[in-house]
Amino acid sequence: MKTKFILPLAALLALSLFLGGCATGMTPSSWPGITADAERVYISGGPAVYAVNLETHAEVWRFAVKSTVFAPPALTEDGQLIVGGYDNVLYSLDPATGAENWSFQARDRWMGAVLVAGDTIYAPNADYRLYAFDLNGNEKWEKPFQADQSLWGTPVTDGKNVYFGTLGRWMFAVSAQDGTEVWKTELNGAVLGKPVLNEGVLYVGLFDGAFVALDAQDGNILWQEPLDSWVWAGPALVDDVLYFGDGAGNAYAYNLDGKQLWKQKLNGAVVGTPAVTADGLVVATDTGNIYYLSFEGEVVHTSSVTGAVYSSLVPAGTFILVSPTEGGNLLLALDENGAQAWNFAPAKK
């Protein structure tokens, strides 16, 4: 090829490679989602869903998706693993083998975990819709419920209604039977996590840095508390106390009337839901610090991992499962003292 072609083509190729590099910034990205049963832990870890044996710590299977997958998988009573990907596909997999049972193609990404309630799967999607499926993957409602904005958080249900928040700062209640709207309440901040429903009251943190309680009957705001920063994941509820963290690195405990019981300053933002153990709470931060707190808010001991921890921590037996981002390991199991018991990093295939 002549020089007159080579130089311009080389320049365009370089430009193309640079923009190609930029394009990685466009790739939707999140942090791994973890779910565990008695035998295995399932991780939505980017390019694939992985199943890891909790005894041998070995990979049992992996299910590669077309794009990426980050939503925590959910298990059904009849033995399915439901997980949605950034390829817009909701998958039903066999938890033992990873074989696909059925799939459903939506218009946008599945950001949050689905809620499995009996024989119904409630699936929030970034296309502003909440879908309801039976266990065979058939839509149960005449049409999915369309909200005002993307749905990133997992819904909750009391059997009568399904409750969820949106990025558009609304909280919705829709009929579990047919998906029609029951009520909606405008909030001051986006809802990114899963609310907690307890005795007719919804508790949820907001991205504008507040924590609110709403009456599940009519959506009225019962109380709201300003915090130091945004709240991402839903709270943990233990013995009528709500535990959660915020972006400023605080761990909080509130009673159900909105009274702050304690506040503990940690190093780094708290994104995930704290794990609850028999002795207290385990809270992770985006600086890779793991805090073991008593139920009274005292730091019992600390640990650290390589990488940021955004994912919610998952207890599995005596271990706490941690999935750090960019730490080299997809999964770490910490013992009661915070020491690393074992790890899992998927082999390249």
Partner: peptide
Amino acid sequence: SPLQLLILQDAVYPVLGLPDIIP
């Protein structure tokens, strides 16, 4: 996506008030 929102949270000048303008 969630990670992009976290990165944006760190990138945006506080005076802009990100929670008021997302999504």
